[in-house]
Design a binder for these strands. Structure first.
Lengths: 154, 154
DNA sequence: ATACATGCAAACCCTTTGCAGCCAC
DNA sequence: GTGGCTGCAAAGGGTTTGCATGTAT
């Protein structure tokens, strides 16, 4: 992968598409946003704000900038926000609105592994095969209920 | 349901078992704990601390008491903590360690409905049948990874 | 009598907001 | 030039902690 050699300067196809989406959404292409997106595209797995900030410390971006940009990226579907219930929001690049998968979080060391895709029935087996024990899971659905359909937001 | 008539004074079988578990765990049976458990047993569905405090306002319990007790209840498996990623922890009575189900949360009005049981493959259909649209879901697994098996906590 | 529970207040900590200056377009 | 972006500082808000007092056992 020659990406490793010039990962700094290279502009991957995914990054170009992302930057394009940013324009389309009426947002501006700033160096900070470019760096954050570049990192998220090159590195897989959900990252907390703190992890992102640490990984991109050389970029000298303010913490608030991460919060604000990731929030906007989520709004336009560029990233997915994930909650593990430990008080941190985590963000992950989302190549397409449909694409999504799930994770296994070690309750002891907090390691996060990704599962190939969202094939719910097969997953528990997959998790076991990864070597996990005392497996718990949380599955929640979100949507617009029938009462709210058509209702405007307050 | 005659429970409705004297829900205040009645001590259901579930409550008795819960109080017994409290003793077994080395905790003390206090009026506050009894009231919290009573409420959680009689009322289904996950409740945030704020909701619990409001529902039991007549009990004049400090907010901190809810936090501390629910945390302990969770530790001994009496309640299940659920995170919807909106900044609130919610708690739900858990009749047995194995019993669990999932929820549908309206992204607009925050209504929470429970799904019968954990039959993952059938659920999305079930959610649709409840009248929900724009359905998203989050499914995460937790467990002890192979690296951590046998390791002691720091 | 003693260790655990509770209430009150303050600390924590992730996240959000306000505002002046800066930069993309 | 102008409106969105950034950095710095401060506020928000759910949750946790410290400590003195109260209480279950």
């Amino acid at each position: 992968m020659k990406n490793k050699l010039n990962s700094e300067s290279s502009t991957s196809a995914a990054l170009m598409l992302a930057l394009q989406l940013i324009r389309t959404a009426g947002l501006r292409r700033t160096p900070g946003r470019e760096k954050i997106l570049h990192f998220l595209i090159e590195n897989h797995g959900p990252f907390s704000i703190e992890e992102l900030q640490r990984s991109l410390s050389w970029a000298k971006l303010d913490g608030v900038t991460f919060y604000r940009n990731l929030s906007q990226f989520e709004k336009i579907g560029l990233v997915r926000r994930i909650e593990f219930g430990d008080g941190f929001s985590r963000y992950e690049f989302q190549s397409s609105p449909e694409e999504h998968h799930h994770h296994v979080i070690c309750t002891q060391c907090r390691k996060v592994e990704s599962l190939s895709h969202c094939e719910i029935p097969k997953i528990e087996t997959q998790v076991k095969r990864l070597g996990y024990s005392k497996i718990k899971h949380s599955l929640e659905f979100f949507g617009i209920c029938s009462d709210c359909s058509g209702k405007k937001l307050p």
